[in-house]
Amino acid sequence: MENNNQASLFLDYVYEIYNTMRSKEISLVYEGEITHEITKAFTSLTESNMGKEQENSSVQRKVFHVMVECLQNISKHSEAGDMYQSKDGRGIFMIHKNDNKYSITTGNAILNENIASLKAMLDNINSKNKEELKALYKKQIKEGRLSEKKGAGLGFIDIARKTGNKLEYNFREVDETTSFFILTSTVLRIN
C-alpha cells in the first residue's frame, strides 16, 4: 500500500515537472556529468530542432556557439568540492525558448575561493561595449595561454560578443567550501 502511494507520488511529480517545463517554456533540461559526447548530442539535437523550425541561420549559429562554450565551461571548470561526492564536470543545462528569444542556462558547483575572481571577470565583461569586447578578445587570444584544462579564457567574452547581451549570473551558497554558479545567456530571435 505504502509502495503504491510512493509510486503515485512519483507520477504526480513527473506530471508536475512536465507542466513546469511547458509553462516555463523549457525545451531541454539535463542534470549530470557534462562530457564531450553530451555536448555533441545536445548541440546536434538543438541544431536539428532549429533546422526543422527554419530558425534564422544567424540565430542558429549564435545558439550553437553559446551552447558549446557553456557546456565546455562546465566540463572544464565545474569544481564539486564535497557536493556530488567530489565529481567534477557535473552541472545542469537548460534551454528556454519563446517567441522572442532563446535562453541558455547552466549551473555548476564552484569553490567559494574562486567566486571573487569569476565575478570580477564577468562584471568586467558586462561593463564593456561591442568595441571594447572586441579589444578584450584580441588581447586575450594574443596573450592568454591555454589552461591545464585547455580553456582559452575566451568563452565568456565570446558569449557576450555573439549574443550582444549581458551575462546574467548568480551564486547560491551550498556550504562553507562550495557554491552553485548559475549563468544565463540570451540570444534574441529575429522576427
Binding site: R61, F64, H65, V68, E69, Q72, I141, K142, G144, L146, K150, G151, A152, L154, G155, I157, D158
Partner: peptide, 12 residues
C-alpha cells in the same frame, strides 16, 4: 563554418 574559443587559440 564553426570553431570554438579553444580552437580559436590554436588557429592563431
Amino acid at each position: 563554418t564553426y570553431f570554438n574559443t579553444a580552437s580559436s587559440k590554436l588557429l592563431l
